[in-house]
């Protein structure tokens, strides 16, 4: 059922002395207080190699692990199109044109963005919903939030309750 060949690595250097009672078993009667203390110390300290004798130690870099990065999404054609569309809508709006989009187009865009944003938040990829404090006015935000809640038949107190219960 097996082959008797030995492949395990042999000790490459003299074994480091480990803190602890390993290799020095207690008698059958049980362990002495000193062994116990040593063992507990070893458990606390973990494997602690003996100090090297000479002061000049070689520093060897084993690994470099770089900092975690936030999910960096590179620009892509869909985002480029979206930016263009946003810029076009902004330009029309600045020129007094509120009717650049049909209600159907507004609804579709709003729903798509709402789902996309919520999915990102839930996946833990949290970024502010608009770029800064001045991207939209407070009144804009209230009108939109109110309309969204109404659309899904929710009351403001339900929003408050959900935020408090879910910690969002």
């Amino acid at each position: 059922m097996s082959s008797p060949k030995t492949t395990k690595a042999k000790a490459a250097k003299p074994a480091a002395k480990l803190v602890g009672a390993a290799g020095k078993p207690a008698s059958d009667e049980g362990m002495s207080a000193k062994d116990k203390a040593n063992f507990i110390k070893a458990m606390m300290e973990g494997l602690k190699p003996a100090a090297a004798a000479e002061p000049a130690k070689k520093v060897e870099i084993l690994r470099k692990i770089s900092a975690p990065v936030p999910v960096a999404r590179k620009s892509n054609p869909t985002s480029d199109d979206a930016l263009k569309l946003a810029a076009a809508l902004d330009a029309k709006f600045a020129g007094g044109d509120f009717e650049a989009l049909t209600p159907e187009a507004t609804q579709a865009l709003m729903a798509a963005l709402c789902k996309l944003y919520a999915a990102n938040m839930e996946a833990g990829d949290k970024f502010p919903v608009v770029k800064d404090r001045f991207a939209v006015t407070g009144t804009d935000a209230m009108i939109l939030c109110g309309a969204l809640l109404k659309a899904v038949d929710l009351q403001v107190f339900e929003l408050g309750m959900w935020q408090s219960w879910s910690g969002v």
Binding site: A16, A51, A52, K58, V59
Partner: peptide, 13 residues
């Protein structure tokens, strides 16, 4: 950089 790490061997440590 902030968040970077290095694992080094110094003597037996």
């Amino acid at each position: 950089k902030d968040g970077d790490r290095q694992i080094v061997r110094i003597g037996e440590d």
